[in-house]
Design a protein around this nucleic acid. Sequence first.
RNA 1: GCGAUCGUAGCUCAGUUGGUUAGAGCGCCGGUUUGUGGUACCGGAGGUCGGGGGUUCAAGACCCCUCGAUCGCCCCA
Length: 411
Amino acid sequence: MANNTPHAIRGTQDIFGADAEAFAFVVETFEHMRKLYRFRRAEMPVFEKTEVFARSIGETTDVVSKEMYSFEDRGGESLTLRPEFTAGIARAYLTNGWQQHAPLKLVTHGPLFRYERPQKGRYRQFHQIDAEIIGAAEPQADVELLAMADQLLKELGVADGVTLQLNTLGDADSREAWRSALVGYFRDVQGELSEDSQERLEKNPLRILDSKDPRDRKFVADAPQIDDFLSGEAQDFFGAVIGGLDAAGVAYERNKALVRGLDYYRHTAFEFVTDRLGAQGTVLGGGRYDGLMESLGGPATPAVGWAAGIERLAMLVGERSEAELEVAVVAENTEREGEAARLVSIYRNAGVVAELFATGSPRKRFDRAMKVNPAAVVSLDIRDGEKREAIKHIRENARVADIFAAFVTHE
RNA sequence: GCGAUCGUAGCUCAGUUGGUUAGAGCGCCGGUUUGUGGUACCGGAGGUCGGGGGUUCAAGACCCCUCGAUCGCCCCA
């Protein structure tokens, strides 16, 4: 290992081979799904003014200061590499007059950046697919989004062992009432909670509900539940989502401890969770964020969306092989390299996956062709001063044989 | 920010309670086989064992520091 070669940044990765194929499969399947559901593509900048994300995430949390990749540009303006898609999409929606398209069904995908300690399924530069419906207040929007997510996981072949966990956070009033009831409840047993949760009580009490510490867990079971604080409208909304999921045949599990830390989340919250990815079990997550547009200075705009980590999905997808080589064309004699190149080109123009073996020792070219497991090997050689052509079929392929036959007769 | 585990050829890994010239497979390079077969056989190159310090007659192995990776905690927009 040359020790003066620059190394990759911690938490970044070079994706190659079977992993890269799995990654591409996830993106291709997602593209297929979004066309099926008629979501439109959008591409957003990878960086924005820091305030776009700071306002979306809440300037008080230390997420902003500690976990974002922020820097000053030459004009002294603070910019940040996007840590999520939603804030940038919301900004684009407001600044480009996309209100005229409401309700707008949008997807995007690409890299995101968070300054975190890498671990299984968590990287500093990672990639997500993302789907949003903006300007739709109806529960049908939540259902459509969930149905698309559910079908995507099935098409990817990863639905086994993945369950959809569903919850409601209610409207703004329900949410606030629940929150203060939780604070009151946990304050009474504060001394018996874990150190982490004692701190959560001040900063983010909802998070105590999904604490892993056994000292917290025994109190969580009897904690106040959102259902007791839901307004009539909030109950109706959640009921409509559940009814829609049943109608669409989407299976789910109620998880009353599933929460979102930020205030602008309302009503539906959901996560598709697996136990096959270690501590990072959430494969796809999202919810309704009716309050976000206003915190970015826009008009009240209902919206719902989800995002999923491409790397995590790719891990579940497992090994994906590269496209099969249909024909390997071998120039076993230097003088036949030109013809071999021409034949490869004929194959490729006809849509046949072909590769040329015409470098290195002529004696070893046939062997090297065999090693890449082609469906057929075509050999062009000169034996005793005479041209010879041969085709060896490992797996039958009529097009390969026909093109070879035509090529030989025209020599 | 905290903790645990791990760093040996390009890659995947062996390497005994510390013992003399550090190994294998794959890959790479060279050679042999004039063959409708040959993904074979033979050979070669490639490593100051992550880096630095220490213990010892002797360290890839033991101790300390450091860097990196992995997994977990925190956090999770």
